[in-house]
Amino acid sequence: MIYQDSKTLLEVRGLRATVNGVEILKGIDLTVRSGEVHAIMGPNGSGKSTFAKVLAGHTAYEVTGGEVAFEGKSLFELKPEERARAGVFLAFQYPIEIPGVANSQFLRLAYNTMQAQRGRDELDPLEFDDFVREKMKLLEMNPDFLDRSVNEGFSGGEKKRNEILQMALLEPRLAVLDETDSGLDIDALRVVAGGVNQLANKDNAVLLVTHYQRLLNYIVPDYVHVMESGRIVKTGDKALALELENRGYDWVSVEPRAAAGAAA
């Protein structure tokens, strides 16, 4: 929601980034203020996930130009874990499996790390167990997932729910959700969207990467951006998403469709 007294949370100016010497992000500008929900759409390979991972500080990507400020501080000066502790959360498009590490242990360490960062009490395993089970109930998640290894053998939709569970535990200032809706069945979509809406308030912000209008029926965006070949080529309100759903991307494209495909 757009508030009158909102503060600038994220300020991206002319962001460029390469991977293995290939430029993927070619000058991104974006301002996200507290309370807002932004959707980023765009064809496959246009750089949406790359943008999300660059914000989170993935070391495979080299930032070659531009600035990113988070709550007025340059993000580039922070290590990935420091960005996370500052409140930047990324729900991954493809959450990785971590065999041998119990989900409950992982969730508790992440939670307690954040609690310590915020000067709040950490929870011991028993306290945390009660706490996390409550959160899981809200997401209609089976508590059996606590005993399994992190994401190991989880179905696509289960992985996505586990991401949202982490978001609910960590209460980020800026949540970047990379195609969290992909792979979710209709009920799961409603549950997950409910989880996101519950978190959203006037002090934080959500950046949704999605291909589909159906998520935006549940989480209504204040702004919709279209990304193409590493740039944001169009910005509008929620009506833009509906229009994209009907007309596809060609009409917003700044370059011939074939060229956009080749760039990807």
């Binding site: 993935h58 070391t59 990935p80 874990e81 959450p95 971590i98 992440a110 790390t113």
Partner: peptide
């Protein structure tokens, strides 16, 4: 792998 460490880092957990 780097990807696993990045996943931890993204949740505030150092290498």
């Amino acid at each position: 792998g780097e990807e696993q460490l990045f996943y931890f880092a993204q949740r505030g957990i150092g290498a």
